[in-house]
Nucleic acid binder design. Structure first.
Lengths: 123, 123
DNA sequence: TCTCTGCTTAGACGGACGTCAAGACAGGCT
DNA sequence: AGCCTGTCTTGACGTCCGTCTAAGCAGAGA
């Protein structure tokens, strides 16, 4: 959006995707990059926001639809959305009056791959 | 271990497994149950611990092997392990002198399923 | 241009988190 | 029994997080 500080090493959808957590020990640098994404999902409000955005038709959701779904002030929702944005989980775009948020499926896929566990007894 | 307070609604490996986050809006109660698990993974140290435990041969890892892998005090590692335990991600068992931690693959599978995104264009 | 609506930023406050040092407990060895 | 080793718990301290109110900015419409 307006500012793009993001000096932090953020998740990149291009990264060739992480080997499963249960297969190889996650190195410290990888953990440092991935942990913030899990942390961002570690709040009930943000988990619901992420789901509402990712499951929205057209792949995007308007803040004006997200905010009234919670008993929280507008700024608080905005803060959570910023957290998701800085974690690389969503993208924001202003179109006219409203701001739309869109999920970044590549990052979600990476996280899912990391947590994948082979169904018992696969070499 | 000795104490088993766990009054919190914790992840149960029996739960029939969550529909993908991007498919249906996660209800508030589900979010309240799952968010702590993601939060537990939202720390680089715990993410590495989880990986070391899950990828250990025999499916379990001794604290005596985990602690020296970090530049942190024993109590701090113990604290992180307790967090993982209370999030339902690992189980602990004392055998003789040492304590062994074991991953709970069912819970990991649930989290992975929640994050699963269909490969673009699946109804 | 003026104003109105929608969203974000700034500042503040209470509570939770990550870390450590010190003490307590459990089990094995002499 | 007594000590030693290994791990967990307790208490404390500084920092980060979630929330709010108030103020700022961006478009749209009159």
């Amino acid at each position: 959006m307006s500012k793009q500080p993001t000096p932090l090493t953020v998740l990149d959808a291009e990264t060739p995707c992480c080997p499963p957590l249960a297969q190889r020990r996650v190195p410290a640098e990888t953990a440092a990059v991935l942990a913030p994404a899990f942390k961002a999902l570690g709040d009930p409000v943000r988990l619901q926001l992420m789901s509402m955005i990712a499951s929205a038709e057209g792949g995007e959701a308007c803040v004006c639809d997200l905010t009234p779904a919670f008993d929280l002030s507008g700024p608080t929702i905005s803060h959570h959305l910023r957290t998701l944005r800085e974690a690389g989980l969503v993208d924001a775009e202003r179109r006219g009056t409203w701001v739309y948020y869109r999920a970044r499926p590549g990052v979600l896929r990476q996280l899912a791959a990391l947590l994948t566990v082979e169904p018992a007894g696969v070499a």
